[in-house]
Amino acid sequence: MGIVSEGFGGRRRSRADLPPGQYLTQDFPVLSAGPTPHIRTEHWEFVVTSESGERYRWDWAGLMGLPAEEITKDIHCVTRWSKLETSWKGVSLDTLLADVETAADFAMAHSYGGYTTNLPMEDLLDGQAWIAYEYDGEPVDPEHGGPARLLVPHLYFWKSAKWVRGLVLSDSEDLGFWETAGYHEYGDPWKEQRYAGD
C-alpha cells in the first residue's frame, strides 16, 4: 500500500464510473501551453494530408454543410478532473475521412497556434472522434478550442486538440507536443497512461 499518511482523509470525490485517479468536476477547466488563438470562421480551414501528400480541404461553410451529430460523452483530463455527459455538436471523422484515400496507421493533429498531438488512425474512426464546433448548444469558446476542436473523448483530453486545423496522416508514429514533453504517446485514461512508459 506504500506510505500511509495518518492525518489524511481525503474528500473521496473519485467514483466507480470514473477512470482511476480522476475526480469529478462541474466546471470546465482550461489547460493549454500558450496564448489562446482567436480564429475567425471566415479564415478557418481544415486540411487532411494523406501519406502520399494529397490534400483534402474544408472551409467553414464546407464543414457546416456536412451531416452533424449530437455527441454526449464523459471527458477526462490528465490533470485529474473528469466531467460527465458533456454535450457537443460536430462532424464525425468517419464523414470527413470517408473519401480520403489512405492506408496510414497514424495521424498527427495540427492546431492553430502550433499545437500538435499524435493519434492512431483506428482511434479516429468508427464513431470515436469528431470535429466539434458547439458545446452545450453554443459555439465552442476560443479558450475551449473554438471555433472547432478535435473531440476524442475515450483518450485523455489533451488528445482532443483545440483550434484544430488539420490532420497529417503517416505510416509511422511521431510524437506531438505534450507527448514529446513526457506525456504518454497513447493516453488511455482507464489504463492511467499519463506519462511516458505508464
Binding site: T25, L31, G34, P35
Partner: peptide, 27 residues
C-alpha cells in the same frame, strides 16, 4: 493567465514565445 497572455500578444509579442501554465479552479 488568459488575460496576461492576451495582453502580451496584443503588445506585439510572438505567441510562440509565450508559455503558460494554469492552475485550474478545481486544482
Amino acid at each position: 493567465v488568459e488575460t496576461v497572455a492576451d495582453l502580451l500578444v496584443e503588445a506585439g509579442h510572438d505567441p510562440a514565445r509565450v508559455r503558460t501554465e494554469r492552475f485550474g479552479p478545481t486544482g
